[in-house]
């Protein structure tokens, strides 16, 4: 039995179907990537899991229990933390208070202090700005706050919605390096939504491709990386054709 199991999940915005029957598994300790273009339904998928949105049909089981009807705070209490699209930090709270709110449901002061240290280990930039209002931080630092806030809950599953969005290539690498470290350190499972397919497939164990609210492709990260369609549409690579040849020539000239 997988840690998270979605079966035929459908979600609507009024009359518009955003998820048209999504079935997906996340195993304990695994990183699962969901790739998809703008408007594919990635954010809707994560919102349906974390209870910000009630699915119209289908079931969502987490650790064996059905959670599709639960409110967001009950889903959080069950052990799912959500790093939302656009970071959504508490802008007028300090970095310290943002992190403290991540651990809102926990009472073990010792464990919280240890986790705070661990997060500062991952993101030394945050330690230096711990008294600063989160709204005054750069986009990259806010992403670190959002990830740190999720880690403070000591969850069994983290939902990550486009953590690379709007960050410089260097920062994207940094964030993904930390995601890899978190997995190695704590074995927490992650469901990672991305348009940046290369970064996501490098860190993930397996993945799904979402298009127009449907899963159109699923497999191990390795298989997806070598799939022709994924290469063409999500990794920007083409093996054959005029464009591919031109690109190859250009590369040769540059070197």
């Amino acid at each position: 039995m997988a840690l998270l199991e979605l079966r035929n999940v459908e979600a609507y915005y009024g009359p518009i179907a955003a998820l048209k029957g999504v079935t997906l598994d996340v195993n304990e300790g695994a990183i699962v990537a969901v790739l998809g273009a703008n408007g594919a339904g990635k954010t809707t998928l994560l919102k349906a899991i974390s209870g910000a949105l009630d699915p119209e049909a289908g079931t969502i089981r987490f650790a064996g229990a059905e959670i599709q009807k639960r409110a967001a705070w009950d889903v959080a209490a069950a052990g799912i933390a959500h790093v939302p699209e656009g970071r959504e930090v508490f802008r007028h709270l300090s970095v310290a208070d943002n992190l403290k709110m991540g651990g809102f449901l926990r009472r073990d002061a010792g464990g919280l202090a240890a986790d705070l240290e661990r997060i500062f280990g991952y993101f030394p930039a945050l330690r230096a700005r711990v008294r600063e209002m989160a709204g005054n931080l750069s986009g990259g630092e806010q992403q670190m706050v959002a990830i740190g806030r999720a880690l403070m809950a000591r969850p069994r599953l983290i939902l990550l919605d486009e953590p690379s969005l709007g960050l410089s290539p260097l920062l994207v690498q940094e964030i993904y390096r930390i995601i890899g470290r978190v997995k190695a350190d704590s074995g927490v499972a992650m469901l990672l939504v991305e348009q940046n397919a290369k970064m996501a497939l490098d860190v993930a164990d397996s993945g799904y491709v979402l298009e127009g609210g449907r899963i159109v492709l699923a497999g191990s990260a390795e298989r997806l990386r070598s799939n022709e369609d994924v290469k063409e549409f999500y990794l920007g690579i083409r093996d054959a054709g005029v464009r591919g040849v031109r690109r190859w020539k250009r590369r040769k000239q540059w070197r």
């Binding site: 974390s50 967001a72 209490a77 939302p84 959504e88 709270l93 809102f104 809950a153």
Partner: peptide, 18 residues
């Protein structure tokens, strides 16, 4: 602090278990 958090960002407050 949780009340402040709720007033600033209800979505994120809910995700944090508030």
């Amino acid at each position: 602090v949780a009340l402040q958090a709720t007033s600033q960002n209800q979505l994120a407050a809910g995700y944090s278990g508030i």
